[in-house]
Design a protein around this nucleic acid. Structure first.
Lengths: 194, 194
DNA sequence: ATCTACCCTTAACCTAGCTTAAGAAATCAG
DNA sequence: CTGATTTCTTAAGCTAGGTTAAGGGTAGAT
């Protein structure tokens, strides 16, 4: 059962009692996802905190010219949500789309709030989870300001080897903030310099 | 007493009992800060979670060419720390420097961990705090990818009016990821187009 | 009040990365 | 297995923003 993955994930931070696990599992909804299916569309409210049991997702925004910009990839055993929209219940500006077919476990906002109340240590776990993501994002901002596209690409390959084999370069380019054409040039350059 | 500011700040999320406030206050260390004083230097471990009671700070990294990149400003009633280094107790790559003379209230790592244990709802408060910062940072990444320097500058003025009057343009330029010379050009352009 | 250290601006020239276009290769859905 | 859709690459020309250099203005420390 795929609920096992989420329990194991959470218990890697703090052990949970049997009753706590039961409460949690009651509120998980598992959902198979097709390739290219969107689990959040800009303009909608983000209703779920989503745990990826299988598959790979991207979260992206669309600018005034219609260009898409990936702000995050999420694969197995990680969470994805537009946290701003999830908490405020305002319209999201972001989209979350499956890059592969997969399976997710979702918790609705009210259910997660109930769980925070009933199992206080979940606050600690989710605080740690978001701190880790905050650190990651902060490093990314710094990298973006202080390195060239080539350095950022090499950094990406190093930091996310499990993703770099799995994603089309066009998606990586969008994450790095460059065009696919330029990434192609960068890759050629790296090739010829070794 | 400046402890009042921090209590008020925390209670804007959830009320605290008298005993809880006392526990907290016992572990706060207040510290006056001079202009240009650094409360974190790259290479050191980030030992404190710092609440700004008065003044304005910047957190920045330095790249291989020696250029500084501001990743965050923090003024009154906000927290600042290199969260990565604070939790891991590894060397920080970042600096935190006062842009003005001011006053901070600091909590040491062990003390904050003690407080998280003793007053569990602090986990909730600090989870919310970091979620808010995460959202802010995520928006910034998106803005950086999808707008020109001019749009980002105008956005900054709008989003942080209290900071934009208070900071030298050279610091704002560094935050926006452009050179002061180019910001000057941008400002001239804005001027002449209205 | 003065000296010093920043800070802001201008301008000429330079470059990393974008745009457009188009063909070849790979992958997906039926 | 096959057609349709995506993806990757190349190349020529372009532009947002960087670099260097230099002068004048402003604010902090004593």
């Amino acid at each position: 059962m795929s609920n096992q993955a989420i329990i194991q994930h959470l218990e890697s931070f703090i052990p949970l009692k049997g009753t706590e696990k039961a409460l949690l599992e009651e509120r998980l909804v598992s959902r198979p996802i097709k390739r290219k299916e969107k689990i959040l569309i800009a303009g909608e409210v983000c209703k779920h905190y989503t745990f990826v049991a299988q598959g790979c997702f991207r979260m992206f925004g669309v600018d005034d010219k219609g260009f898409e910009h990936n702000i995050q990839f999420t694969a197995e055993n990680e969470w994805i949500a537009d946290i701003g929209s999830f908490h405020s219940q305002n319209q999201s500006q972001l989209n979350i789309e499956a890059l592969e077919a997969g399976l997710v476990l979702q918790i609705k906002q009210q259910d997660l709030y109930f769980l925070y109340n009933t199992i206080p240590k979940l606050n600690l776990i989710f605080k740690v989870l978001i701190e880790l993501k905050y650190i990651e994002l902060q490093n990314r901002v710094l990298q973006n300001f202080s390195s060239t596209a080539e350095q950022r690409y090499l950094g990406f390959l190093e930091q996310y080897p499990h993703l770099s084999n799995r994603l089309p370069n066009t998606q990586i380019a969008s994450y790095l903030g460059i065009t696919p054409e330029f990434l192609s040039k960068v890759r050629k350059n790296i090739q010829s310099n070794r």
